[in-house]
Design a protein around this nucleic acid. Sequence first.
DNA 1: AATTCGTGGGT
DNA 2: TACCCAAGAAT
Length: 357
Amino acid sequence: MSIKTDSEKLLNWYDKNGRDLPWRYKNGNKPDPYVVWLSEIMLQQTTVAVVKGYFSRFINRWPTLFDLSKASLDEVLQEWSGLGYYARARNLHKCAEIISKKYLGKFPQNERELIQLPGVGEYTSAAIMSIAFNKKATVVDSNVERVISRIFAITESLPSSKRVIRKKAQEISPANRFGDYSQAIMDLGSTICLPKTPLCVECPWEEICQARMKGIEKNLPVKKPKKPKPLRQGICFWIIRHDGYVLLRKRQEKGLLGGMMEIPSTPWEKNIQTIDKAIEYSPLRLSMVNWSILSDNVKHVFSHFNLLLIIASAKIKRDKLEKLSLTEDFVWVNPNQINQLAIPSLTKKIARVAKRK
DNA sequence: AATTCGTGGGT
DNA sequence: TACCCAAGAAT
C-alpha cells in the first residue's frame, strides 16, 4: 500500500465531497484562527447540527477574538446556554483573555503552547495547528478513531487502543495540505465511514480497508461497555413573588452546570426526600407559605446520571418578603425573561412546566 | 486509567 | 422507546 497515493485519494475525494460548513474557509481564503478555535471548542462532543446556530450567534455578537475578550463571563455563558459542557464556555472566556493579553491577539503556532491554553487539549491543538496554520499535526477525534480502526482492522477495544490508533494515524498523514487532510479524514468519518452503516462503496479508501476485506467493518471500533446511568432525584422550588417574579440561584463556578442559573432545589440523591424534609432545603420556611406539588415531574438526562425532579410551587406574600434573608447568589427574575439568562436546558425545562401549571 | 463534565439529533 | 453517538478536556 502506498501511503502517498492513499492520502491523495482522500484529498481528491475531499475536494469534491468535503462538507460545506459555516466555519470552513472557502477556496482561496485563509482561515481565521479565531474562527477555527471557536468552532473546534464548540464541536467538542457536540454535533455539527447543534453547533451551527451557536456558532452563527457567537460570530455575529463577537466577530473577532478581541471582541470576545471584552465580554463578561456571564455574557458568554448566556450565549452558550443550552450547548452543554459549560466548562468549555468558562475556558473559552479565559482563553480569549490569555490570547488577547499574553499573545496580543495572535494564537501561538506550536502545539506546546496551544495545548497549555484552557480548553485546548491534544485534539484541539492539532486541529488549530493543521486547519488554521496548515502545519503538520495529527488530529485524532472519534471520527479518526473509527476510520483508523477500520482501515487497519484494529480489534483492540477503545479506549485502550488509542495509542495504536494515534500511531497509525500519524503514519498515514500526508506531507502537505495538512489542514485539508485533517478535515478530509473527519469528513470521511462523519459522512461515509458511519458508525452503524458505513457507505463503503462510496469510500475512497475501500480498497485498502482491512476491516472491509475481512467483512468486520460494522463491528469496529470495539468499545468497552459503558456503565448504566444511576437515577438521582430531588424536589425543586418554584417560588413566585407577589409581582410574579420567580426566585433563581446562581450555581457555584465549578462543577456541574457551573456558573449557570438554577431553580433552587434539594440535593439530587438516590432516594427522594419526604416533602416535609425537602422543604427544609427551601429558601422559605414552611410557616411562610403553602406549598403545592405540581402533577408534572421533570426528567432530565445528564452525561453520567438521570434526574427526576418534583416541582413544589408557592406564592410568597408581600408581608413575608422582608423576613426572607437571601444570600447574594439568589435573584428574583421575571419568569418571561428566564430564557435570556445563563441557564442550562434543565432550568428551561422546569420553568416551562412550572409556568403552564 | 477512570470519572466527571450536557444536550439533542439520529436510528 | 431506548439507545447510540458526537471535530474531548480536565482531573
